[in-house]
């Protein structure tokens, strides 16, 4: 464990807290992509299948359960719970996620660590996580203006990715046996997707102002 990874995980948890607060307290899922949340649920459920046979630490196992529980709760609330379900707009949030899931599944089958079923599923989850934010970013782009809590949510997710990048660099230089090409590649792609958002986030929040983020 290093400080980058720990802060990355905390930032990830913060993103769940922000989103859960927004949809439970604000009673609205407007501006939130259910498609992205469903992708995250698939990502966590497939990657953390190894909860049943891999044990690395209590910290890890506990957070795996937290991530599965939070993403499932978010999907459940937006899809089935009133009044939130009526605030979800399927016409706006219509990114064709089959075009993300399909290629990631093929990539998982072809490019993985050692050709075992779990390694294929695991690689699939890594590839899918890299692109899972796309429906959310497209939704924000369509709306043009992003509500504060939603922008904080995306910013927390982006911070998590950025901190994980630093964690990989740190581990590469401090550990002898640390080499994870699949994770590094997918993680770099994923972090890159946030760059444009962060530019606009910075523009609207600088100087202590709390204006909504405007996207062109």
């Amino acid at each position: 464990m290093n400080i980058f990874r720990f802060l990355g995980d905390m930032s990830h948890i913060l993103s769940f807290v922000i989103l859960l607060l927004k949809i439970t307290q604000g009673k609205s899922a407007a501006g939130i992509s259910l498609r992205t949340q469903e992708l995250y649920m698939i990502v966590f459920c497939s990657r953390y299948l190894d909860l049943f046979w891999n044990f690395s630490s209590l910290y890890n196992s506990f957070l795996k359960v937290v991530f599965i529980a939070c993403s499932s709760a978010i999907v459940y609330i937006i899809r089935f719970k009133s009044p939130q379900k009526d605030t979800w707009n399927p016409e706006l949030d219509n990114f064709p996620i089959q075009y993300l899931i399909g290629p990631c599944a093929v990539a998982g089958l072809l490019i993985n660590q050692d050709w075992t079923p779990f390694e294929m599923i695991w690689a699939f989850s890594i590839y899918l996580e890299a692109v899972a934010i796309l429906p959310q970013l497209f939704l924000l782009q369509k709306q043009g203006e992003v509500e504060n809590l939603t922008s904080h949510y995306v910013a927390a997710l982006g911070a998590y990715r950025g901190l994980y990048l630093m964690n990989w660099v740190y581990r590469y230089f401090t550990e002898d046996d640390y080499l994870q090409r699949i994770v590094w590649f997918a993680g770099t792609v994923q972090t890159g997707l946030y760059i444009d958002f962060f530019y606009h986030y910075y523009q609207s929040k600088r100087g202590g102002l709390s204006r909504p983020v405007k996207l062109p």
């Binding site: 990874r5 995980d9 990830h12 190894d50 891999n54 690395s56 630490s57 890890n60 957070l63 795996k64 991530f67 660590q113 050692d114 695991w122 994980y164 964690n167 046996d177 640390y178 080499l179 994870q180 994770v183």
Partner: peptide
């Protein structure tokens, strides 16, 4: 050689 990485990250 290198051992496969442990899955110790989230």
């Amino acid at each position: 050689g290198k051992t496969p990485p442990k899955k110790d990250e989230l």
